[in-house]
């Protein structure tokens, strides 16, 4: 594998994929969760990952911003190796500070929101720009208000997360990720923990975001969203990519048997 890489050290300059995964493996102890994932996310694309639970979708997503370490294979974000530096054919682990530097550009939205409960909605959004980028408090505050307006929560700026509904919390979480002006957004089942009636508001925000040209990798069970908004779709099962293509094709005419049986249960 290293031969192939040394030739391919710098990806072609024409269209650098936002995410490029080559044979990514990941194990937790003896359990192999990812068994060689190959895929490419183009800039500006909405890339949906679907599949049964335990198929490794969320793990793969977490590998992209190095919340999980890859065991084998190579993972690139915007042409740069994730978590390591390559010199010759040797890999060097990045320092925590270097990893943090790269994470600035990758926004992440979690299934369980993970808002900071001791800060108001506006403080949640303004926190990272002030602490990480050194933006002035006032500028961050203004930006936070704009972002909260954008996700339809301008009137909830002073509320603590415990005073917001799940859908509102998730929209604050999206605003928080956007505050860092990322070039890539990762969504880890953003609507799975929500009451059905609240899902729509969150999806609307994500749809707007997609229209604005943001590159998004979305792990989701919302097939309607994948079909309408998605540009590419990958069906994963058992740690491998079973089928990929345009969402409409995969969802309406699944070729693979496993995809068919999964979709018949979900749709």
């Amino acid at each position: 594998m290293s031969d192939k890489l040394s030739k391919n050290d710098t990806p072609p300059k024409a269209v650098v994929p936002m995410v490029k995964s080559e044979g990514v493996h990941k194990s937790f102890g003896a359990v192999e969760v990812l068994k060689g994932i190959d895929l490419e996310v183009k800039p500006g694309e909405v890339f949906c990952l679907i599949g049964p639970s335990g198929s490794g979708k969320s793990t793969f997503l977490r590998c992209i911003n190095h919340l999980e370490k890859v065991n084998a294979g190579r993972l690139y974000v915007d042409g740069e190796l994730v978590g390591y530096r390559q010199k010759g054919d040797k890999l060097y682990e990045l320092r925590d500070s270097e990893v943090a530097l790269k994470r600035r550009d990758i926004g992440m939205v979690f299934q369980r929101f993970n808002l900071f409960p001791h800060m108001t909605a506006a403080e949640n959004v303004a926190e990272a720009p002030v602490q990480v980028k050194g933006v002035s408090k006032r500028a961050a505050q203004e930006q936070a208000m704009q972002l909260l307006e954008r996700v339809g929560l301008g009137d909830k700026a002073g509320n603590y997360p415990s005073q917001l509904s799940g859908g509102q919390q998730q929209r604050v979480a999206i605003a928080r990720a956007l505050a860092m002006e990322p070039k890539l957004m990762l969504f880890d089942e953003p609507t799975s923990a929500l009451d059905p009636e609240l899902v729509g508001d969150v999806l609307d925000v994500m749809r707007d975001l997609a229209e604005s040209g943001m590159t998004m990798v979305v792990v989701t069970h919302e097939m309607g969203f994948a079909r309408e908004v998605g540009d590419s779709l990958v069906f994963m099962d058992g740690g491998v990519v079973v089928e990929s293509g345009h969402p409409r094709d995969v969802l309406t005419n699944p070729r693979h048997e496993r995809t068919q049986s999964f979709l018949s249960k979900v749709l």
Binding site: N65, L67, D96, S97, A100, L101, K102, R103, R104, I106, G107, M108, F110, N114, L115, F116, E127, A128, Q131, V132, A173, R176, A177, M180
Partner: peptide
Amino acid sequence: EASHALGMSH
């Protein structure tokens, strides 16, 4: 995790 994902240091 959320804090790390935002690029904040340890």
